[in-house]
Design a protein around this nucleic acid. Sequence first.
DNA 1: GTCTATAATTTGATAGAC
DNA 2: GTCTATCAAATTATAGAC
Lengths: 181, 181
Amino acid sequence: MSARSDEILDAAERLVRRAGYAAVSTRAVAEAVGIRAASLHHHYPTKSDLGEALAARYTDRFLEELGSPDAARHHPEGPIALYCDAFRQSYKRDGALCLCGVLGAEVQSLPTPVADQARVFFKRNLNWLTEALRRPGKPPPHRDAVRILASLEGAMMMASALEDASVLDTVCEDLSALQNA
Amino acid sequence: MSARSDEILDAAERLVRRAGYAAVSTRAVAEAVGIRAASLHHHYPTKSDLGEALAARYTDRFLEELGSPDAARHHPEGPIALYCDAFRQSYKRDGALCLCGVLGAEVQSLPTPVADQARVFFKRNLNWLTEALRRPGKPPPHRDAVRILASLEGAMMMASALEDASVLDTVCEDLSALQNA
DNA sequence: GTCTATAATTTGATAGAC
DNA sequence: GTCTATCAAATTATAGAC
């Protein structure tokens, strides 16, 4: 993975998170990097290859930033607040919703490898949440994980569509409050 | 609005809800109807016109099916259950997520009139929910409305991406239960 | 690794006959 | 209202020079 390959993913991520996979051309990504389309295809032979690498890196990075579910359990404000903040920071830092939220909405028109990588994001996040919320002597809280991730994905989509970040803040506050109930 | 114009919107809705706006060509819509692309452009001069009419009809129909917020308040299972069922039925009947959830995820690459119509869906739904959940002597529950709609939109996206309708069911059940708390 | 050049296809859209 | 024919532009991708 060369520096240039990473630069290409950076540009692709910025564009796809705002416009969607189908609406972003390999040419547009190349232009954003400052190279020709033919050069981009040297790093990623097909658009599908680019999309797959993009989703995989996004997922790896996101989970890396989260840290271990075990550490999250001992976070002073609780695992839900920590998890919400990861999305909130990502949304505010990049001014765009979750890459895999975007891909998930157009999953039926994605090349199979890209769709599969988007699914991996959701599965790994659900596993992380289930682990972080687990309480001794109780069954794994899978339903809570589903509810939390779905709320956050929907909140980011609506915040982006309505150009109103307070939608995400509202949902995050209510999710954190619920935890203490 | 001729019968043919409506047929075109039917086909467009089916395709866009599965693949996204950018991934669906006017030719593909025309083919699904059984006419030529030139004939489609007679009914909707541009793709943007088609998208705008599509989102507007979707919103009108959805709110019509919901009925009045006042009637929902007196529903035997409560307004939240009624609202959740509207999305659940739509998801199962059409095998696809909310049209405006799809459009919302790619809002930055949509023609302005289409993006605006997608926003109208969210605003009208938030107003409906706020009204249906209102309780005398209390401030309008705008936050609850945001939380509920965001949860449902995210749940549909995830159900579609993971090809697992139980995600939507789980979220609906938890939303209804919360109401009684 | 990047470029120019180019191929093959698709796309949104129009002109004009019927 | 629908068609054939056509267009200009964009898109994904490849060949081959440097």
